[in-house]
């Protein structure tokens, strides 16, 4: 893309992202009112158990006796100033709870994503290079397998194998409990705890990226510029790396953006299995306690994360592929 058009592009994408976030807030608001029972008890986060004075205060605060559009306005103003409500159960503002858990989730999803892309693209390239051989078949079968396996079950099986039977790796938490570690030891300890959850979350996406890379590489390999490169006498390894792979990666970037939401969703399951202290685990605990304020907050924050990630991949795409005329 022409660099001079970048600001306009950024502005259009920014507006679009803002509209999506606004729509999510409205969606949350509608859900609070669609839920059976009193909206105040939904906001309070415990159906029926919250004390009357707190409910009355909430009714006052959210203007629940006023017309719907006024209520929406009050709710919107609250969310946009990062006031995501108050968790009555945990006696803490929802935003504080989420902020505390965010780094753990980012570490987990980041590690899983990096692993999935690196291993997926490698396997997909290998499969495409050896089309029709047993190596290709094995990679295809592995991809199909992980595509059809429930994420949480893969996690449990890894726990069973590596923690229960082999006793190699810890099965829950983010750090060893009751031990004071510093420096490199602490990092290694977290890494050891991270290995299984990141592997679990990454395996499914590895399958997705492997299949995608294989398919697009085969498509690109048929094109004229690849034949030209070969005819010029460019060595085979270079043709694969610089001509085929580089072009085949574009759909992978697009797909990474599309998959961001699923990665976050998957982290809820993985964090539940491994008791990883991120927002997924927070959501699960909130689910058990029917703490709707926290659930709504988690939905809002994860959506914002996905929108942000999509913005980054759009930008990356436009920078990587100069031909792209990104339309509004």
């Amino acid at each position: 893309m022409d660099p001079s058009r970048l600001p306009g592009f950024l502005l259009r994408r920014g507006v679009k992202a803002a509209v999506v976030i606004l729509a999510i807030v409205v969606c949350n608001f509608l859900l609070i009112h669609a839920a059976p029972g009193d909206p105040a008890s939904v906001i309070a986060g415990q159906s029926g158990a919250a004390d009357e004075r707190f409910l009355a205060q909430l009714r006052q605060q959210f203007g629940l006796d006023q017309p719907l559009h006024v209520q929406l306005w009050i709710y919107l103003k609250g969310v946009l100033t990062l006031d995501l409500g108050f968790s009555h159960r945990q006696q803490m503002p929802v935003w504080t709870l989420i902020r505390e858990r965010l780094p753990a989730t980012l570490l987990l999803t980041g590690a899983a994503f990096a692993f999935a892309v690196a291993a997926g693209v490698t396997l997909g390239t290998l499969a495409a290079r050896r089309v029709g051989t047993w190596a290709d078949s094995i990679i295809t079968v592995i991809a199909l397998t992980f595509y059809a396996t429930p994420l949480f079950w893969v996690g449990l099986m890894l726990v069973l194998f590596f923690s229960v039977w082999l006793e190699w790796l810890p099965s829950f938490g983010m750090a060893t409990v009751g031990v004071e570690l510093h420096g490199i030891d602490a990092v290694l300890d977290v890494a050891k705890h991270l290995l299984l959850p990141a592997l679990t979350l990454g395996l499914f996406y590895l399958a997705v990226y492997a299949r995608l890379t294989r398919a697009t590489m085969l498509e690109v390999a048929d094109q004229d510029f690849v034949k030209t490169a070969r005819a010029k006498g460019v060595p085979e390894g270079q043709v694969v790396r610089r001509h085929i792979l580089r072009n085949a990666l574009l759909p992978v970037i697009t797909f990474a953006g599309i998959q961001a939401g699923q990665l976050i969703g998957g982290s809820i399951l993985v964090e539940t299995v491994f008791a990883w202290p991120g927002i997924g685990r927070l959501a699960f605990d909130a689910l058990l306690a029917r703490d709707y304020a926290v659930l709504l907050g988690v939905f809002f924050c994860t959506s914002v994360m996905v929108v942000g990630f999509n913005l980054v991949t759009d930008l990356l795409y436009a920078v990587v592929d100069p031909r792209v005329e990104v339309e509004g």
Binding site: V20, A23, I24, C27, L31, A34, A35, P36, V42, I258, G261, Q262, I264, G265, G266, I268, L269, A283, L287, R290, Y292, L295, L296, V298, F299, T302, S303, V306, V307, N310
Partner: peptide
């Protein structure tokens, strides 16, 4: 819009609330 929002989180929210 529906493709952007994290669908699994949304599904959890829907089932929990209803």
């Amino acid at each position: 819009f529906f493709q952007t929002i994290p669908s699994f989180v949304f599904a959890i929210l829907l089932v929990a609330i209803f």
